[in-house]
């Protein structure tokens, strides 16, 4: 793998509400290399989507604001870049697919108009070339009747087809980075698999780096190279897919893996992590996961662990200093 194409350093994003500052993303670091697929996993409300919107510069502002850290795209800090600069990057260099295919396309414009606009914004092409490129893109994402689709409206397409259109639109300018924010959550299972396969195929063919944001570890196992696990606005564990699945270090990651339904298991009920994600900013002292952790120690209540490790990193005292096994016994 070559060097990092997108690098996030100590990113902090907060929402300023009537009740004060709510830190949704609280100092996260990660990077993604060219051609790589990075998974970002976590429960709802852990700051995954806010991270992606921060990178795109699409935070609803106010109330959202990047309050610290840097986002480097090809070495250029874009965390506070001008709107005009971001417009050039969006769609062309960094593209995004959203969670809701049913509502992400404009209902009153045809597929063709929306797709061609995405291309035209960053390329100077003639009308004929635009149509050719659009048809080519729709074929690339496996849509039948590509030429006819151009004249159809979003409501005439199914959810899976719309998400394919969204992917075609995102891929239209050959972006270097594609951020996919839960692209399959709203789709049924068979369509999910097709969409994921499509994204892996595009990744192989175009070498576009993909940041796959999901709460579904199955998706991660199927397509990612590396994974970052997020909890309450922080990354708690990071490593290769093998590391994470075979040797999870953080109790939260372990809990997530344990709670995947097992086809062959004979359990009556699934494993659950007790409690829920704390409200951002509500825990000021100690490890953020301490209230829900099975292996909680005294120092977890007082000190906050750092993300440490070489390659496979985790934010847990169990792996820092005293060994974990000892505690487990």
């Amino acid at each position: 793998m070559s060097e990092a194409i997108l690098k996030v350093e100590g990113l902090k994003t907060s929402f300023f509400t009537d009740d004060g500052e709510v830190p949704a993303v609280d100092g996260i670091d990660f990077s993604v290399n060219e051609g790589e697929i990075l998974g970002i996993v976590g429960e709802s409300g852990c700051g995954k989507s806010v991270t992606s919107l921060s990178i795109m510069g699409l935070l609803p502002a106010p109330p959202g604001k990047i309050v610290g850290g840097h986002i480097y795209y090809k070495g250029e800090d874009i965390s506070h870049a001008k709107e005009s600069r971001m417009r050039k990057l969006r769609g062309n260099d960094i593209a995004m697919i959203f969670q809701e295919p049913m509502t992400s396309l404009n209902p009153v414009f045809t597929i063709g108009e929306q797709l061609m606009e995405a291309i035209r914004l960053h390329n100077h092409l003639s009308k004929k070339e635009l149509i050719e490129r659009s048809v080519e893109l729709l074929k690339l994402v496996g849509l039948p009747r590509a030429a006819e689709l151009l004249d159809e409206y979003p409501h005439e397409l199914s959810g899976g087809m719309r998400q394919r259109v969204m992917i075609a639109m995102a891929m239209s300018c050959n972006p270097k980075v594609l951020i996919a924010d839960e692209p399959t959550t709203a789709l049924d299972v068979t369509i999910q698999a097709q969409i994921l396969d499509l994204m892996v195929k595009l990744n192989k063919e175009t070498h576009t780096a993909i940041i796959m944001i999901t709460h579904d570890l199955g998706v991660v196992a199927q397509m990612c190279n590396r994974v970052a696990v997020m909890y309450a606005g922080k990354i708690v564990e990071e490593g290769t897919v093998k590391d994470i699945f075979n040797h999870p270090e953080h109790p939260y990651t372990e809990g997530l893996i344990k709670s995947i339904p097992d086809l062959y298991g004979k359990k009556d009920s699934l494993y659950t992590i007790k409690g829920s994600v704390p409200k951002p900013g509500s825990i000021t002292k100690g490890c953020l996961f301490a209230p829900r952790c099975e292996f909680v120690m005294d120092k977890c209540q007082v000190n906050r662990p750092e993300l440490l490790g070489d390659g496979h990193k985790s934010r847990c005292f169990l792996h820092q200093g005293q060994g974990r096994k000892e505690v487990r016994k």
């Binding site: 795109m56 699409l58 971001m86 417009r87 050039k88 990057l89 969006r90 769609g91 062309n92 593209a95 995004m96 959203f98 809701e100 509502t103 992400s104 396309l105 404009n106 209902p107 009153v108 414009f109 606009e117 995405a118 914004l121 960053h122 969204m166 639109m169 995102a170």
Partner: peptide, 26 residues
């Protein structure tokens, strides 16, 4: 506030264009 406006922004479209073309027709 809708998702498709966010999509248009993610394409790199100008806000004035988004407002007068995309949003107004809706």
């Amino acid at each position: 506030k809708s998702d498709y406006i966010r999509t248009a922004k993610a394409k790199g479209q100008r806000m004035i264009w988004i407002v007068y073309k995309y949003a107004l027709k809706n």
